[in-house]
Nucleic acid binder design. Sequence first.
RNA 1: CGGAGUGUAGCGCAGUCUGGUAGCGCACCUCGUUCGGGACGAGGGGGUCGUAGGUUCGAAUCCUAUCACUCCGACCA
Length: 454
Amino acid sequence: MRSASNRLQSQPMRLSRYFLPILKETPKEAEIVSHRLMLRAGMIRQESAGIYAWLPLGLRVLQKICAIVREEQNRAGAIELLMPTLQSADLWRESGRYDDYGKEMLRIRDRHERDILYGPTNEEMITEIFRASVRSYKDLPLNLYHIQWKFRDEVRPRFGVMRSREFLMKDAYSFDLDQAGARHSYNKMITAYLRTFKRLGLTAIPMMADTGPIGGDLSHEFIILASTGESEVFCHKDYLGFETPPETIDFDDPAAMQAVFDKWTSLYAATSEKHDAAAFAALPEEARVSARGIEVGHIFYFGTKYSAPMKAVVNGPDGKETAVHMGSYGIGPSRLAAALIEANHDEAGPIWPDAVAPFRVGLINLKVGDAACDGASARIHRALEAAGVDVLYDDRDERPGAKFAAMDLVGAPHQVIVGPKSLAEGKVELKIRRSGERELLGVEAAIDRLGGKA
RNA sequence: CGGAGUGUAGCGCAGUCUGGUAGCGCACCUCGUUCGGGACGAGGGGGUCGUAGGUUCGAAUCCUAUCACUCCGACCA
């Protein structure tokens, strides 16, 4: 079982004291399964078109996703900061994007009649921060990132948090002296992304992509395959078996990073916009994978597109000023929460991978008020919490059926069911959410198993 | 932004055509019986009928305006 490193700071949680507004019926507006289940499980609540409140259960998932994203960004040498959501229009006039961006940008006016905007991305601002302080090539390379709410005023938001107007995004920005350095930075992020998605329990494939309004000439989308995916994608089957770069890989070794890039871009992979039917048809038939995909990350190299007009320059070894080469690297944690459900669910609810489960263990006391059941449940709850496991303890005075349904909807990967029948023989039942597999174990054995000791 | 819809209790809906003072299921509260896959009975609480104007003795219902939300398409992390 994965270590407790991704555990949230939290108090022991009893469902009777929690805020988990689950719905028995499906709200009619929810078309896709992730949206439906997130509403039913009480993870999110829509407050406006494309704008959602994250309720406690959803927030836990979001925080766990962010923790993994953060760990892998840090491992790759990126440094976290936090930029504001609101930005000055003047900054965007410098890059020329204030007029280019169109109606997707939410424009606001403050009390002094100054134009401000709710940031859809942060290239301008990070460039401004960089140029204010960095003067020398010796301070390079640099990669700064933050995890912050963004807003894009989509014409038609839909699919819940999969395509919302407000969304959480990790965006990293790299600064290098030249193109070779920028390529290395790009390769580091590819490696970090492969590791990030793997840890989230997803198989993500980098695919050639259009650069969109951000511009540039090197860009990949990271796509996960899911039958309910929004777009059509085509790739070589071997990608599905490729090994993820290990934790120990040296991010400062350009050759190692280039090798990762070369391997993961060696075979055919493209979204429908970039699809080359002839190239795809040239693959052996059994190697062709044509599927639906969900974009969960997008990376760009765009050279001096912002640094030149915004004068983000450094002195090189030769004493001359040069505009830095930049790239940007996005992952959408809020969208990932939905994508994870699209990739992991059944009729009863989400089936979270251990790494992002809001609670790793769901503890069900089938007979609240029965001294033996209460005692065994409390013992298990305390022991697992002490072992660093997130446990949701259903101590409500409800009927068994309602408890089973609720816990399946929460999606805890491991369930412990404490009922009078099995407890009479000193046993509790362990259920694996994904497979439905059940096993009877003694109380202490169950604690050891789920606490990671056995 | 084009096209199509919907706004009535927390959720799902009926009532609107044909105007007469608001109803059903789930959820919620109380009591009882239940209790290993979303129980049953009895009782109860909760609604400015999206909003504003108009017509009328009387408007959820008819008229006008407006707002919000949803779906299809184009667009997009």
